[in-house]
Amino acid sequence: MPAELTTPQGTDPTRIHNIGYRSYDGPRLGRSYARRSLFSQSLRGAYGLGRSAKSKVLPMILFAVMCLVAAIIVAVAVAGPGMTDLPVKYTRYAIVMQAVIGLYLASQAPQSVSRDLRFKTVPLYFSRPIERVDYVLAKYAAMASALFVLTATPLVILYAGALLAEFDFADQTKAFAQGLVSVALLSVLFAGIGLVMAALTPRRGFGVAAVIAVLTISYGAVSTVQVIAWEQGSTGAVEWLGLFSPLTLVDGVQTAFLGATSAFPGGEGPSAGSGVVYLLAVLALIVGSYAVLMRRYRKVGL
């Protein structure tokens, strides 16, 4: 063997501190461990943990705002005389706070996926035991979990406040549970949309703008047209127009199935029958987002 080919570096006396190479004989935990590691790294990263101090600022502020508003609502509920329920329902909270949620998604979805694409780190992942599906699932689950933390934590605060104010326990617990299901659905739906937008626009500014546009503009447009339709008396149109923006989709599902009062004009949310269409639309969007992400990464060779 070519031991005699050793370059001088091998015996360089200035490398005296070099204690020599140690091989690794320990466990190799494989693909599912790698996927879990990517999930936790991405979830932490969505709150700036393990990243620079600067990147913690925005997600932490947005998280604080979400919690602070809930705390104020609780304060009102506890201090207010003769209150029997929270002034804002669990299922309404995310709709009220949609701007904060949108901003969070617009800032964190690009950092989660666009960075790896822009700096061409993706090939380094795919040169390891994980497969494309592991990467996409880990990123998707991490973004959805981050959104769930953002939207469910204030509901926990509301629930704690409601119990503190000694509102009806059974009512509160049921409504709280319905609220959790609703924000879970919202988290998965929004995560998919945000990641697709971000993965298709690796340039940073564009990704942020695309997410905001899809969420805010679609919601603004749908709400406006709904108001016009409602004023003209076509309540049927109000019911179906809600299919065309992510947030009104969630509103429709929770109105039909989760005891929510619709935020549509006149409260004209879908009935249980048309609610099925809303639910199918949400599921189709989630599956579609996943499929688009899988396609997107198929093209990212080495």
Binding site: L29, Y33, R128
Partner: peptide, 10 residues
């Protein structure tokens, strides 16, 4: 470190 974990190292 992250890449090492991606390769399966504890």
């Amino acid at each position: 470190v992250h890449m090492a974990r991606m390769s399966g190292l504890p």
